[in-house]
Structure formats: structure tokens, C-alpha cells
Design a protein around this nucleic acid. Sequence first.
DNA 1: CAAAAATATTTTAAGCCTAAAGTTTTTGAT
DNA 2: ATCAAAAACTTTAGGCTTAAAATATTTTTG
Lengths: 158, 158
Amino acid sequence: MSQKPNTQVPEPASKDRLRLWLRLLKASRLVEAELRENLRQKFGATLPRFDVMAALSRYDEGLKMSALSGVLRVSNGNVTGIVDRLTEEGHVVRVAVPGDRRASKVCLTDQGRAEFARQAAAHETWVDEMLSSFDQDEAAVLATRLDHLVTTLTEGED
Amino acid sequence: MSQKPNTQVPEPASKDRLRLWLRLLKASRLVEAELRENLRQKFGATLPRFDVMAALSRYDEGLKMSALSGVLRVSNGNVTGIVDRLTEEGHVVRVAVPGDRRASKVCLTDQGRAEFARQAAAHETWVDEMLSSFDQDEAAVLATRLDHLVTTLTEGED
DNA sequence: CAAAAATATTTTAAGCCTAAAGTTTTTGAT
DNA sequence: ATCAAAAACTTTAGGCTTAAAATATTTTTG
């Protein structure tokens, strides 16, 4: 029988998961802050507007407002404001949907498409620099692992 | 000599790093959204207010406003508003700093400390559930890897 | 067909966030 | 001692974000 009581209790897994979450949050906030700042300085743009243009760039026919908020996982009212500003800038247009006067499709203009191409190229460079401490294999492995996490977090809601 | 031209060019590392960043961002946004929603529903609280209380809970003597915004990496004006709301709720107090009438230290009240303890326990449980697909070792390894990333991202600025 | 329900979107109120400007107080250099 | 610079903090203006309410239109149902 051991004479000394075991005062060295093992750390529960929840503590390691909490630490993982805090690091994940800190890392993504740091990268995001740098991207926001770069977009602001180099293009007078914002990350939400970039995100909307990125989503639209994958749909030549445009997206309805509700589809846009669904893809981006933000509220409808949020998208309204961002599309308003992109419209003022001439980067997108609202196009009436034939047969449904409630809805409109949002499409990139030619100007918006050209501007997004410039921003996306710079964006990829910035990310490549910030994550340069990951070699290609490590980046691929970790991306796949996070993809699994995203799947578990989102399954049973769509 | 090979007769066929090599049309299958390798993917550059920047694409894998971009994919990693997009997954990292999506995962952290999903977790964060769930935590925000839980804090709102279960405690009528918000993540920024939780973050401020978490920072204060590590400093019994309280923190000056500027130290608080430094720890949290947010702007001074931002902290002003959040501390105003926490003060209205009775969770924190501004205490005058002897010898410097410009500054004040923010301290958790007893009520704030008790409330934070409840929220922090729930928060750890929520994170543990959301990241349950990571076993303890994987969580520890990945947390350490992200810690290195955070270090490279922040070095040469503090 | 008319009323009710559902859908698409915008508006509103409140909070979060930043950069920049403003206020008050302290420090430092002359 | 004075006075300019620095420091601590708040205020402001503008944008992002949500939940909830409001508006307009379409679909369903009795």
C-alpha cells in the first residue's frame, strides 16, 4: 500500500481542450486582425465586404440575399448593409428576380470582379506569409483535421 | 525522355495554407458563435464581457483600463464601453488610483467574481463538448503547435 | 376566392469594434 | 516655475453584427 496520498491528480481532458480553444481563438484573431488592417490600408476594403465578394465570385449567376446570408452564415439584416455599401462602391448590383418581386439576386459587376481578383491575390499572399511556419504537408494535414471538426460542429443543422 | 508534357502541375504551398486559414477561421467562428449564443441564453451575458471578467479574474488587484485593453488586444475606447456595461450590472468597479487622477483600476466585485465563476464553469463544459472529437493528447499537441504560431505572429511587436 | 401562413427582405435597437480626435492630468526639459 | 510632450482615458463617427419587428409578396388552405 502506498504510504503517501496521491496529491498529483491528472489534468482532465477538458483543460487541454480549453487551452486548445483559447489558442485557436487567439491565432485566428491575430490573423484576422492583420488581414483586416491590410485590406483597409491597401484597398480601403473590409473583411466582411471581401467575404461577400468572395462568395459571389463563385456564382456567376449571382446569389439571392437569403442564399448569401446562408453561405456566409450571417443574419439577413447584416447582408443588407454590406450589400448596400458594395452597391454604393459599384462592386455589386441587385438584379430583380423574374417572377418574384420580393427577391433580388446580387451579382458582381465587372468592376467588382476585377477589384476582387486584385484583393484575392493579395489576400492569398498575406495568408501564405502569416502561415509560413507551416510547411505544405503540415498545412494540408491540419486543414483536413479542422475540416472534420467543422463537419462535426455543423452536422445536424443544415 | 517523357513523350507527354506534364500538364499536372503541383499545387503551390500557398493554396494549402489558404485552405488551412479558411478552415481555421470557419472552425473558430462556429465555436465562437455557439459560445456567444450559450452565454446569451444561459446568462444574459456576452463574450466580450466574459473576456473582460476572465482577464480581471487573474488579477486580484485589478487592472488599469490601458492594461486591460493591452491584455485583451482591443482598443481603449472599446474597453471603456464594456466596462461601463459591466459596471451597470454591478460586476466590476472603477477604483481611483492614488497619485494619478487620470487612471483608474477596474476590479471584479464579489458579485462579479461569483458570476464569473458560474460562467467560466459552463464555458469550460461547452468547449469540452464542442471539441470532444479531440482526445486529450491531440488537443495538447495542437494547442502547443498553435501556441508557436501565436508566438511567431506576435514576436517583434510587444 | 379570401384568409392565413410562409417567404424574402429591410428596418430597428442595442452592443461590439476601430481609428482618430478630444479632455484631463502628469512628466520632463529648460 | 513654465510649458510642451506624453500618458490615461473618453468621446465620436462609422462600420459590423444580431435578434426581433416590420413590410411586401407569394403560396397554401379552407
